[in-house]
Every structure is written in structure tokens, then in C-alpha cells.
Amino acid sequence: MAGFWKPHRVGMAVVALGLVALAVIYGRWEWLANPKYQMLFVKGIWLSIWLTVVTMCVGMVLAIPIGLAQAVGPWYLAAPARVFCTVIRGTPLLMQIWLLYYGLGSLFPGTWVQKSDLWPILRQAWPYAVVALSLSVAGYEGEVLRGAFKSVPHGQLEAAKAMGIPRFTLFRRIWLPQALQRVLPTIGGETVLQLKSTPLVSTITIMETYAVAGRIRQDTFIIYEPLLLLAVIYMCLTGLIVLLFRWFEAQTPSRTA
């Protein structure tokens, strides 16, 4: 611990504390005492976390077959997977969200969908947000996993086949774990990016953290203070994700050549 407090670090810490003190002294923070805004922030943060976790999980589950299809699949599976990744990665996420929410949503009026049992869910905004964000993850991670599957040494797979290990067991015990382990740091980074993609869904009426800060700005005309709080919140969440993935990485012993 003594080694941590080098002169330049002490200097940086003083500057950081000074900035925080300036923000606290000269900023207008009275809105923070309003229970309405506190509740909104708690709900918003929960929604941001929920969206990040759920869409990362759903996206990864979709990304595994997409990556596999591209890495070793026959052309009729590989080609659609490649087209999907190219389209998802080649267009803005905001546009995808709006196409799903306003575009797809405008097709429903007067059709059977509006009379079905699904309508109470489909008329809300979150299903569109979850689908759009998950597809985005699937597109990016599908590409990442393609490389990961290819990078597992072919000899291991051949050896496993020679041992008579069934195909699915081979995939589950040998191929997938090694592929995932190789891209774990990348996925950690992508999760942080995903967290910071979630504010886009505030444009389709979902009150996540960013939308809450926007709402406070619109109610009180105070601009910078909610944004500063927003920055702190996202930094804390990012820190949590980084720690979580460090822990994941520590769980899987790896041998470096």
C-alpha cells in the first residue's frame, strides 16, 4: 500500500478531490433531496443493469451458433450468419432500435396482433429494447466467437474425435470453454460498451438512468449536476463489470506459452 502513494498519484488524487469539492460546493444539488427523483434514479439504475445483463446473456446465447456457423458451418448457414453480422455491425444501433419500435410497431394496428394475448406485452417499449440490444450483442459477439472457435487448436478436436468423444460433449467440454476463455477479456469490454449503449433506449420512452437525468434537467432546468451524477453512476457500474470479469478470468486457470 505504501508503494501506491507515489508523488504523481498523490497529485492526481488531490486534483480529483478538488474537482469533486468544486462540484459539491458550486453545484445545485437540492433536487437530490427530492424523494421522487431518488426513486426515479434507483429504478433507472436497476433498469440499466437489467437491460445490460439480460441483453448480454440473450445476445451471447445467439452469438454461439452464429459464430459456429461462420467458423465451421456449411455455406448455407455461414452466409446468412455473415450477412446478419455485417448488417448489425454496419448500421447504427439507434436506427435499429427505432426501426423495431416505431417501424415494426406501426405494422400492428388493426391486425390480429392487437387482439392477441401478446398485445399487453408488445405495446410496451421494453420488448423492442431487449430485442434490439440483444441482436446487437449477437452481431458483434458472433464475429468475436467466429475467431475464437477457429483459434482452438485443431489437433485437440481431432484427438477428442479419435478418443470417441461424442460431438456434443466435445463441443461442450473442449471446444466452447476454450473459445470462451480466449475471448473473456473482449467480452468484458463489450459488456462495458453494452452498458453505455443502453441510454439509446431512452428515446423509446424507457426511463433508464440517462432518461432520469434528462427528466430532472427538463423539470428543474439544472443541466450539469444531473449529468455529473450520471457520469459517476456509469463509472461505478463500469467498475463493477470490470471487477466481475477480472474475477471470471481468475476462475479459469490459463497456461500462457
Binding site: Y102, G105, S106, F108, P109, Q114, A125, T205, R215
Partner: peptide
Amino acid sequence: KTYQTLDEHNQDLAAGR
């Protein structure tokens, strides 16, 4: 539900949301 613009809430009214 709050919207950034009038067009957006009108669109969601038309869409039945």
C-alpha cells in the same frame, strides 16, 4: 409516457401503444 416530440407520441397513439 413521456416523449421528446409531438410526432413520437402521435405515432405511438396511431400504433395503439
